[in-house]
Amino acid sequence: MVDTPFANAPLVPATNDAAPLLDVRGLSVSFGHGPAAVRLVDNVSFAVGAGERVALVGESGSGKSVTAQALMRLNPHMQVSGVVQIGGCNLVALSDKEMTAERGASIGMVFQDPMSSLDPLMTIGDQVAETLRLRGVSAAAARARALRVLDELRVDRAAERLAAYPHEFSGGMRQRVVIAMALIGEPKVLIADEPTTALDVRVQERVLDLLYSVSKERGLAVLLITHDMGIVAGFADRVMVMYAGRIIEQNDVEPLFASPRHPYTQGLLGAIPRIDQKREQLQSIPGAPPTPFTRPPGCHFNPRCAMAMEICRKDYPAMIETGSARVACHIHGGGHA
């Protein structure tokens, strides 16, 4: 292996004594009122330190994007409870105006749907440069910086494209524009929701390497939401697995892949198509995840779990901590929550 500053860096940083940059405790999110209210995210707690990269994974509909939107307080119809601390300031308690300032200054967000963050009537160059312009950076300097970031993200013919509009971009280019918009203001925390789904593997690799370097060198804390375990393996220090609105397992990346504890995590890792193998049928976890309206009592995974016991149908398992691992599963003991 080549000797590089990265080769010697610990894959998992030594535990940070300083307070984490992003600290989330008991986050719950509901929609609707009274009997029609439905809880989409339930009692989620985690922390991301400076320079740390944490991945949030889970099946479609498990609550990953709702969690991200709640952190940023983006949906006025969501009822959010719990504590979200960024650099010592509780976002849940801020006024709307304070929150808007905080969003621009210290948190960058990349949405799952790039078009929702792009203005179809504004040129790409103006949109990427906007954060800097609002801070009083000159038009020429902001434009030069926008060009630099787009170049770094491998947008072809970027200089020429600054004057183009979103509809003239391919799906993958739009996604990179949105990443550029989030990075250009040099935030402390980046929340990226499926930021590379529209990218081919080479560009994806490039974009993730860039995020990785920014995180290492500038201490950017990254919460990466993805469904791709390959990306998780290469990018994250730590992984959180979400199922039906709850985090059911959390561990450093190596032990999580080497010895997943929760039967759901085991299933998730078994369903990956490999380029070097061809199988007749892809293995999928039997059944479908419950909707927020049909979550079964006990452990929400129990109807799909080959190892479910009597207690799994009755009580929700408590989160048990052993070493770096945290798992909420009765097989691993610990009683109910």
């Binding site: 789904t197 299933g267 369903a271 198509p273 293995q283 999928s284």
Partner: peptide, 13 residues
Amino acid sequence: SALDVSVQAQVIN
């Protein structure tokens, strides 16, 4: 592209 491996496997199948 937006599907996790399990649902992706289901849709592909």
